Lab assay of single mutants.
Amino acid sequence: MTTFKLIINGKTLKGEITIEAVDAAEKEKIFKQYANDNGIDGEWTYDDATKTFTVTE
């Protein structure tokens, strides 16, 4: 398992979430669903070196 981080830079929601997953593709799906469930629609980036997804509205 690898630890992945999501950084949220939303208009109404900001924060960080850290979760373990098998791979980045699995985690991306979970993070995007979390963002969608919380009304966050923005630009996504991924840094493989730090295993960090960022979504910015």
Rank of each mutant, 00 (worst) to 15 (best):
I19D: 01
E26A: 07
A49L: 11
E28F: 15
T56D: 04
T54D: 01
D37H: 04
E28P: 04
K14A: 11
A24L: 12
T12I: 11
V22C: 12
K32N: 06
L6E: 02
E26H: 08
T50M: 03
N36Q: 13
A21I: 14
W44G: 00
T52D: 00
K11T: 12
K11G: 08
V55P: 00
G42W: 15
K14R: 09
I8P: 00
G39M: 05
K32R: 13
E16A: 07
A21V: 14
T2I: 14
G10P: 01
D23W: 13
N38D: 02
I19Q: 02
T12V: 11
D37T: 10
F53S: 04
M1H: 06
D23Q: 05
I40W: 12
K5H: 12
K5R: 09
T3E: 05
G42N: 01
K14H: 12
K11P: 06
M1S: 06
V22I: 09
T12H: 12
E26K: 05
K51G: 04
G10C: 15
T45I: 05
G39W: 09
F31T: 01
K11H: 11
I7T: 02
D47T: 02
L6T: 00
D47A: 02
D23E: 06
A25C: 10
D47S: 03
W44T: 00
E16F: 13
M1P: 07
T54L: 05
Y46C: 06
T50R: 04
A25N: 08
A24G: 13
E57V: 14
G39Y: 06
D37L: 11
E28C: 15
E28G: 07
F4N: 02
G15C: 15
W44N: 01
Y46M: 01
K14P: 08
G10Y: 14
A49P: 03
K5D: 07
K32Q: 10
F31L: 08
E20F: 13
Y46F: 04
L13F: 15
F31E: 00
V22E: 09
I19P: 01
E57S: 10
V55F: 12
E16L: 10
K51Q: 07
L13T: 08
A25F: 13
N36Y: 14
L6G: 00
G10M: 14
W44Y: 03
V22W: 13
I40E: 02
G15I: 15
I19S: 07
E28I: 14
K32I: 11
E57A: 11
D37Y: 09
A49Y: 06
M1F: 12
K29T: 09
K51N: 08
T3H: 06
T56N: 06
D23S: 09
W44C: 04
A35F: 12
F4S: 02
K29N: 10
D37W: 10
I7G: 00
F53C: 13
G39R: 05
G10S: 09
I17H: 03
I8D: 00
D48S: 06
I30L: 10
T12C: 15
T52L: 02
F53Y: 07
I8V: 08
G39N: 08
G10N: 04
Q33M: 10
G15A: 15
A49C: 11
I30H: 05
Y34M: 08
I40M: 04
K11V: 13
T54I: 07
E16V: 13
E26Q: 07
N38Y: 13
V55Y: 09
A21K: 04
T3N: 04
D41K: 13
M1V: 09
E43K: 09
K27V: 15
T56E: 04
V55L: 12
I40F: 11
F53M: 05
N38P: 03
T45E: 07
I19A: 05
K51C: 12
A35Y: 05
T50N: 05
D48P: 09
L13W: 15
I7L: 03
D37F: 06
N36G: 07
T52S: 03
A49W: 05
T18H: 09
Q33V: 06
I17A: 02
I30S: 02
K29M: 11
K29R: 11
K51I: 09
V55R: 07
